[in-house]
Design a protein around this nucleic acid. Structure first.
Lengths: 103, 103
DNA sequence: TTCGGTAGTCATCTTTTTCTGACTTATTGC
DNA sequence: GCAATAAGTCAGAAAAAGATGACTACCGAA
């Protein structure tokens, strides 16, 4: 039984796809920080109070898989990893800002 | 231990609030149909293929509680109930459309 | 008064998400 | 070599969300 959300007869909701990209307890927070510049795992752990490694990791993995974030290994002084917005990610920023300004 | 998402030190994400209004398996679909005019329980059951009473009921209750939808008892021919967008709901429509057009 | 339509509730079960704590791997400063 | 920093993984537990099936309540028509 393939339980895909196949709302047939044209009842599919396109907005749903986009909403799902940012659904989850920590994704909006991660996305917001990423809007201001590249983010790092350790920074996220510090900024997102209450979050845990596992949740941040899986949120990052999903954001990568959905191509909103790009992972980069920065071979410098203290070698580290950065996540920055992809083009697709940037495209969502204006809408995200509107969501923010809404209330 | 009150486990509220209190991202202190200014790290709260305002967009998160709005995103949560439309989070869940059926809310985007309900909202979308409500954009085109008042919706009824039985219609939703027909249109949202795969959905079940309980899920639709609780989605409707949450959309009401979040003041996106207003419930109205229509005392007419076949007495029934209608849900229509509130002002707050209408305010989200433009953003919702953008989410739709994004892909 | 019984039936169909409309709009649910309730208890329970299953699935999905999120959290916890212990352990891992690579690099770098001392 | 040894500890710290950075970025995780993994198994298991708990919590939240969603699904199921039975049952309820109101109205109107036959």
């Amino acid at each position: 039984m393939t339980t895909e959300n196949t709302n047939r007869e044209g009842a599919v909701c396109p907005a749903e796809e986009t909403l799902k990209l940012l659904s989850g307890k920590w994704k909006p927070g991660i996305f917001r920080l990423a809007c201001d510049g590249p983010v790092r795992f350790s920074t996220l752990m510090r900024e997102l109070t209450g979050a845990n490694k596992q949740s941040i990791t899986s949120a990052l993995r999903e954001l990568e898989a959905d191509e909103l974030l790009v992972k980069t290994i920065v071979r410098e002084k203290p070698l580290h990893i950065e996540y920055h917005l992809s083009q697709k990610g940037e495209a969502i920023v204006p809408i995200f800002r509107q969501l923010e300004s809404l209330k």
